[in-house]
């Protein structure tokens, strides 16, 4: 226990806690570190890049409902006792356990001007080359798409667990009651999946607002800030421009936004969850 606690303390708890006072400082690696009060925060509110990054992070939240819908659908598909269904479950899960760097490189190959998609399109007769990763209209949706692709397996497994907790007798009873498969899905399955939908949505919301690694690996916020998200901006300010204090302040603001959304969702879920409590 102790070694784990020490490692966790040094590399996780200490940096998290230290980032809070850091946000109120002008930190210098070699020079004088000074207390600057709210200066980092006022700077953020006046910093258009910060607002741009926050907007992109908010846009990223679009992945949440899409991801949940696809995952629920796939979970119902792989929940059926079809032959070879385990293989499908594994296939959908592979992206989850693949490292983000590998994912980034792979999608880089696929989307490259000379990559898989462009080659296929050219073979099909298109003369136009699409520069996926240089098109500022396309890059953010592409990153969102990759995030969805990578997350499906994880959430599918969560929902599969939820579905398997619903006794098959319930749908049989509904079937005899006269329910169609669609009615069973919407009137029985979905209401009983609700606790899972809340938890998965919350986790996925937190991940979306805090998105970082896909941006870091694939675009570094580019092209032309089109994929600049707040977490990446915070990182870049701290470790790119060595504005540690400002970076920490931006990070802290993002944490506040995430906490706020989480609390809203959590409270809403408690209200809705009460009536469905088992």
């Amino acid at each position: 226990m102790l070694p784990a606690l020490i490692i966790l303390g040094v590399f996780t708890f200490y940096p998290i806690i230290y980032s809070i006072p850091l946000a109120f400082m002008k930190y210098s690696v070699i020079g004088q570190t000074s207390w600057v009060g709210l200066q980092n925060f006022t700077r953020a509110f006046q910093d258009s890049d910060f607002w741009v990054s926050l907007g992109h992070s908010a846009e990223f939240v679009i992945v949440v409902p899409i991801l949940q819908l696809i995952s629920i659908y796939l979970a119902t598909v792989v929940n059926k006792p079809l032959p070879g269904v385990t293989i499908f479950r594994v296939l959908f899960y592979i992206p989850v356990v693949t490292s983000m760097v590998a994912v980034g490189i792979m999608w880089g190959f696929i989307l490259d001007p000379t990559g898989l998609i462009n080659t296929l399109m050219q073979n099909a007769g298109f003369s136009h080359v699409i520069y996926f990763m240089n098109n500022s209209h396309l890059t953010l949706p592409i990153l969102m798409g990759i995030t969805i692709w990578q997350g499906i397996g994880y959430y599918m497994m969560m929902y599969l667990g939820g579905l398997q907790g619903i006794p098959s007798e319930l749908s049989e009873a509904a079937e005899i009651d006269g329910a169609s498969p669609a009615t069973i899905f919407f009137k029985i399955t979905i209401p009983l999946l609700k606790p899972f939908i809340w938890v998965c949505s919350l986790m996925s919301l937190i991940a979306a607002l805090g998105v970082f690694d896909i941006v870091f690996v694939m675009t570094q916020g580019g092209p032309n800030n089109a994929t600049l998200v707040t977490n990446y901006y915070s990182y870049n300010q701290a470790f790119g421009n060595f504005n540690f204090g400002y970076g920490a302040a931006v990070g802290l603001l993002l944490s506040i936004v995430i906490t706020l959304f989480s609390v809203i969702l959590f409270v809403y879920q408690r209200k809705g969850g009460q009536t469905h409590a088992k």
């Binding site: 006794p167 007798e169 319930l170 049989e172 009873a173 209401p191």
Partner: peptide, 10 residues
């Protein structure tokens, strides 16, 4: 009527 009642819990 089912053994485990099969009532809709929600």
């Amino acid at each position: 009527v089912f053994q485990n009642y099969a009532l809709y819990p929600h």
